[in-house]
């Protein structure tokens, strides 16, 4: 059995942003990455990101999100296709492109013998800040990310989540106009995650553009202007949340459990209207159920074909 919502997605594999009007700060065309061992991790991705936008990239493990982001950040050479960052050809001029980017890799190591202050300060210097500015930026970023109390602590003595915040902080130094963050909040506690959200909103308010990947639907919903879903190396969707919802023909979700065997996994069915959903619960004499609007998670599962629900198709398929 496969997801029922899957089939209710209107045939529409690519969408979005016409190349006109708004200024595109990121332009990606026909991006293909085939690793040496033959793995085709990105299979032709086209995408534009406008100035001041927050774009989140979702997709299952191994879908190609990191591969995609690492080509934007120039860490990985594309097999073919083009990447432009603020009009600079990032493939040909990686250093110029990197001057405009703050980057947090999915997995980066920190220099453990430096203190938090030294780490931020030295990396701010790499970004071209003068000594005084670098020090101020180091304190600012530490405060913003809730690391103020740890500023003189060695990075090697920090917890996993605190180190993760160091990596985010390094990207923020020098307030680059484009932030590219690969799973920035993975491993963070709920409060720290919200701190990061606040920081992202703040830099966007100051005019920066942000592209980040995440496995948290809530994070994507709350922060992004547009959401991209990568599936098997292709951009399966790239749109605003509203437009993604509009793609679901049946956007009411009934979740119910078997009253005689409550331990069995819950079943899910989708319906076009609330009335249809109610009708179903009545006709099936369901006693324990919930009806809700479909969420980003439903769209995600529909597009990535990841959820195998127990229920058959809903009415009106």
């Amino acid at each position: 059995m496969t997801t029922s919502a899957n089939k209710s997605i209107r045939a529409q594999s690519q969408t979005s942003a016409p190349d006109v009007a708004e200024e595109n700060v990121v332009r990606v065309r026909g991006l293909v990455k085939r690793y040496r061992d033959g793995t085709a991790a990105n299979r032709g991705i086209d995408l534009n990101v406008r100035r001041g936008e927050v774009v989140s990239i979702l997709g299952p493990n191994g879908a190609g999100k990191t591969t995609f982001l690492r080509q934007l950040t120039t860490e990985l050479k594309p097999t073919s296709g083009s990447v432009e960052i603020f009009g600079v050809n990032a493939v040909a001029e990686p250093e110029s492109a990197k001057r405009m980017m703050g980057i947090t890799p999915q997995e980066g190591g920190v220099f453990e013998t430096l203190t938090v202050l030294e780490h931020f300060e030295l990396f701010a210097r790499f970004k071209g800040l003068r000594r005084r500015e670098a020090r101020l930026a180091a304190f600012d970023v530490a405060d913003e990310l809730g690391l103020g109390a740890e500023i003189n602590k060695r990075v090697g003595h920090l917890s996993g989540g605190q180190r993760r915040r160091i990596l985010i902080g390094l990207a923020l130094l020098g307030r680059p106009p484009l932030l590219i963050l690969d799973e920035p909040t993975t491993g963070l506690d709920p409060a720290s995650r919200q701190t990061v959200w606040k920081v992202i909103r703040h830099v966007v308010a100051e005019g920066s553009t942000v592209i980040f990947s995440t496995h948290y639907m809530e994070e994507a919903e709350r922060l992004s202007d547009r959401i991209g879903i990568i599936e098997s190396g292709r951009l399966a969707a790239f749109d605003t949340l509203d437009k993604l919802f509009a793609r679901l023909e049946r956007s009411y979700r009934v979740e119910f459990s078997d009253p005689f065997d409550p331990l069995v996994e819950k079943s899910v069915r989708y319906f076009a209207t609330f009335a249809e959903a109610q009708e179903h619960t009545a006709s099936e004499q369901l006693s324990e159920y919930s009806i809700a609007r479909a969420s980003l998670e439903d769209i995600y599962f529909a597009l990535t074909g990841e959820r195998f629900v127990k229920a058959e198709e809903g009415e009106g398929a």
Partner: peptide, 8 residues
């Protein structure tokens, strides 16, 4: 990787 993220 951190160095690689910088204009260095």
């Amino acid at each position: 990787k951190l160095f690689a993220t910088l204009p260095l």
